[in-house]
Computed example of a mutant assay.
Amino acid sequence: MRYLKFLGLGFVILGQQAVANPLVLTDSDSWRYHGSLALFAATSTTGTVTVDGSAADVDLDLGDALDYLDLTATGRFEAWRGNFGLIAEGHYIGLSESATATEGGFAGNSVEVESTQAWLSLMAGYRLALGSFANGRPYAFDVQGGARYNRLTQSIVGSGGALDAGGTERWWEPVVATRFTWGLADGWDGAFVVDASGFGANGNDLAWSATLGVARRFNDRSSLVFGWRHYDIDFQTSRAGGPFGADLSSSGPFIGYAHTFN
């Protein structure tokens, strides 16, 4: 029986891809703060995990996600003053799968694959535009950039211990992002966020994500956030035992909570 379980654990005030942040829709000469935590359900996860030259494919559809509680948690913390912002975000993903090796000396044999990835980003943000549509609803556009620390741990184990390969890679890379936020209606905000990192630094050809989200404000401080997110990573490096990497894509809905600290 094929088994795939994709679990996540988020940092309570640090995380990946907050959505509509109401702070960027208004101006202020004092510092204001915004944090969020959300659950992300990867209804589609595909790609390849490679350890010491042995590779195994990952393929998760909506049915698998519903059967095996395919879930990850995510969040973010921002501080803004006027057009300037400081942003911290983190993320954790864990993957465990029984699959068939497709490359390397163990090709064609059943293996257990484990892969966990965590990162922490520290960025500065700048709001390039703040205005209103013809209907009076506000909008804002900001750009972000900084550095991201990554930790990727992977292993492939054959039945009976015939193959036991694994290791951990840690690296820093640049990260950039853009976000468009707008007021949808009274108490409702929307946002579209795109970020990218790696650009060939330390073996990460490119990691990127796109998020479309909506926030329902209950009051001046609390919001329910929900939407859709896609994440993609293509990382590979050379180790003593052979190539080590992950080429994975995940898509799915998310729902969470956001809080503003004035």
Rank of each mutant, 00 (worst) to 15 (best):
W172R: 00
E169F: 01
P138Y: 11
I156G: 13
G145Y: 06
R151N: 08
N135H: 08
N150C: 03
R137G: 13
F141C: 09
A162M: 02
L128P: 07
Y126S: 04
G145F: 02
Q154H: 01
Q154A: 13
F141E: 11
G145V: 01
Y139A: 00
T168S: 14
G131P: 08
A134W: 11
Y149S: 13
S155E: 12
R127P: 02
W172E: 03
F141P: 01
R127F: 03
A147Q: 00
G158Y: 03
D142Q: 08
S132I: 01
A147F: 01
A140L: 06
G167V: 05
R137E: 13
R137A: 14
G145C: 05
T153Q: 14
N150S: 12
R151I: 05
Y149P: 03
G131F: 03
E169L: 09
L130H: 15
N150G: 05
A165R: 14
G131W: 03
G167K: 08
V157M: 10
G160C: 11
R170E: 13
D142W: 05
G131C: 07
G167C: 06
G145H: 04
S159M: 00
L128K: 06
T168R: 12
G136A: 11
P138S: 15
A162T: 08
S159Q: 09
R148A: 13
V157Q: 13
G160F: 05
R148C: 05
D164M: 02
I156S: 08
N150F: 13
R151C: 00
R137K: 14
N135C: 08
T153Y: 04
P138Q: 11
A134S: 15
G136T: 14
R170W: 00
Y139G: 03
Y139T: 01
R137C: 06
Y139S: 02
L152R: 05
W172K: 02
G158K: 06
V157S: 14
W172F: 08
Q154E: 10
V143A: 15
R170C: 04
V143G: 15
A162W: 00
T168H: 08
A129H: 07
L130E: 15
R170D: 11
T168P: 07
L128D: 09
R170T: 13
R170S: 12
G166W: 03
T168Q: 07
W172D: 05
F133W: 11
R137P: 02
L128T: 13
G167T: 03
I156L: 14
R151K: 10
A140K: 01
S132N: 15
P138E: 12
W171N: 02
G158H: 06
T153P: 07
V157P: 05
T153G: 11
F133V: 04
E169K: 14
G160L: 06
S159F: 02
W171L: 04
Y149M: 07
L163I: 12
T168E: 12
Y126A: 05
D142A: 06
Y126Q: 05
Y139P: 01
F133H: 12
G131Y: 04
N135V: 03
S159P: 03
A134T: 13
W172Q: 01
L130K: 14
T153D: 14
S159T: 10
D164E: 04
R127S: 06
Q144W: 15
